[in-house]
Nucleic acid binder design. Structure first.
Lengths: 345, 345
DNA sequence: CTGAAAGCGCTAACAA
DNA sequence: TTGTTAGCGCTTTCAG
């Protein structure tokens, strides 16, 4: 028995209504052949009337293009939430994907590497997406090899690790913001400046720390401390607490991101240290949040929205999507001076 | 470019390697028929060796199930970013979806209604997802009708609007947190208490304000002010600034979410008002952020993670996904007293 | 110019 | 028990 479910309207319904063949509909809708204007109009009218759009599954099956791109985020949910960073990146990507009718398939896996690998593998094997966007480039990034094996086109947001086989999008003059931050602090008279970095496995962690150190050396200074934290506020808090209680505590700290800076400020305050009176703080990213804090956060602005856009565009071009403009260059990170930095005590 | 991949391994490759028919592979992989253990093993081994998983497109085309669910967020990117709310909801959903091999297709549309409608329409017409999760139930929610027309299964997170045709997941005893907040403030001696709500078109806006007012009446009080803001920090700031400069300013304000509370605190501080000395503040959501602020935020905790999980589970069951447990009930919102509330001045 | 027909990879009747 | 086969909805030769 021909069990008819809420039967979907198909291309043949449109063809029937327009009084043409299915192939005519296909061609007209995809702007392929050349047809008399009258036919074109009738077909388009019929498609519109029936509210028909081609089934993504059928198109994908036929042409091996899904018009979807994937992103797998390997951060624990609670830490993800603590860092609005991703939301901005995703929003940026979406603003380029949506108008081109591309979907974004998101996977949030924990920090377990095997879950991450599995996610990419499924994306590829099941042919769910045409390509993926990676963030948070890692040292010895296992994803580079994996994605090559999977033949899954990819674009990386951020500094590639060595000769990463994956094309990447980055801000021009990537280290400018950090240099400015160091200069700014030195100008304010700070001599004991510390850096609290994110996890060591991130490529940018090493880079930024190197820039930090180099720039201090440029001023004939050495880092007061270089510390490492993860994305948990608690970790950052205890690291900061410890260093502030050391013999020669820093008078200024640069943090790898705004949320860490906030956690740092919170820890300092708990020790009764005034920010910026006794301790200057510089964040990184410039989340909108920073302007609501007291003191308002001095931070290194990254144009996350544009990075997201650029990544999407780069991937789309790579996939051969026609009419995709080249990704515009992303502005260099720059220092936004607000209230959390002041003269050294 | 657009390097065509070495043609994908298909079910017939697996069948060939295992020396059986394709249907045998299909059945075995999907655990359908009954086969001798030896055959089963050989097939599974072959599938594994070839790293084969069924093409999502083919499966979808065949069975009309995509194993993907959709979510469209209608908030401007910058405001999205300002509110980590969604990230938590999404993470919660993912933790139930991922283990069942469901994907999450995310669309971020602006606040333009037509973009939103288009997104749902495409999701349905192109059969990209099996169902959708809605958030932020709206008054006269146009999505209810739309999704019914589209025959797109849906689950709503939050209080439904009237006889919303869409099943919804909600915390038990939804208004408990607000009642506790009011009681708490009254206990502290506050008599002039204001409420700053989110956009009027959200269902919960009206509900919470009603609860707020009712609970005050219970204490034989009237609201000092009831104000409305949108999700932009600036709006909240100016609303708060104005009310604090009025003749009889409130000594306590309850906000519709934590980010608004933060914006409010920031505005108060700019007027030189001490929080909580001169103004007590209560937030809503309990973002991790709240504990890093100074003063730490007193807030109404919502279990966003569980709401996300419950929504996913409910939808999956609705879709007939076997082995999906019923969604556990979501704990009632409750007041977390921290430092932003204190005795009335 | 237009239409008929062959699959894309998979599942589920139906046969053997 | 296992294999054969007919489509799912679409695009794309290839005839007409």
């Amino acid at each position: 028995m021909a069990q008819r479910r809420t039967s979907r309207t198909t291309i043949s319904d449109v063809a029937a209504l327009a009084g043409v063949s299915v192939s005519a509909v296909s061609k007209i809708v995809n702007g392929k052949g050349s047809f008399p204007e009258a036919t074109r109009e009738r077909v388009l009218w019929a498609a519109d009337r029936l509210r028909w759009s081609p089934s993504a599954a059928a198109v994908a099956l036929r042409g091996a293009k899904t018009r979807a791109i994937g992103m797998v985020v390997n951060r624990a949910p609670d830490l993800l939430n603590a860092d609005p960073h991703f939301a901005l990146l995703i929003a940026g990507m979406e603003s380029e994907l949506a108008p081109r009718d591309y979907g974004l398939l998101l996977h949030i896996v924990g920090e377990r590497p095997e879950a991450e690998e599995r996610a990419y593998r499924r994306l590829a094997d099941e042919r769910r997406v045409d390509g993926v966007v990676l963030t948070e480039s890692r040292v010895n990034d296992p994803r580079a090899v994996l994605l090559r094996d999977l033949h899954l086109p990819a674009v990386l947001i951020g500094a590639p690790w060595q000769e990463h086989a994956i094309p990447s999008v980055e801000a021009t003059d990537r280290e400018q913001g950090m240099k400015d931050a160091v200069d700014h602090l030195v100008d304010l008279g700070h001599r004991r400046i510390a850096y609290v970095s994110g996890p060591e496995d991130r490529v940018h962690t090493g880079r930024r720390r190197a820039t930090f150190t180099d720039r201090l050396r440029h001023h004939r200074l050495l880092p007061s401390h270089t510390l490492t934290s993860d994305f948990a506020a608690r970790t950052t808090g205890s690291v900061v607490t410890e260093v502030l209680q050391s013999d020669a505590p820093p008078t200024a700290i640069v943090f790898a991101n705004d949320m860490m800076a906030l956690a740092g400020i919170s820890a300092a305050r708990r020790l009764g240290r005034d920010v910026p009176g006794e301790l200057s703080v510089v964040g990184h990213d410039d989340l909108p949040l920073g302007q609501l804090l007291h003191p308002q956060l001095t931070t290194i602005r990254q144009d996350l929205d544009h990075m997201g856009r650029a990544a999407a565009l780069t991937l789309l071009r790579h996939l051969g999507e026609e009419g995709t403009p080249p990704a515009p260059s992303v502005a260099a990170p720059r220092l936004i001076v607000r209230e959390s930095t002041a003269k050294a005590p």
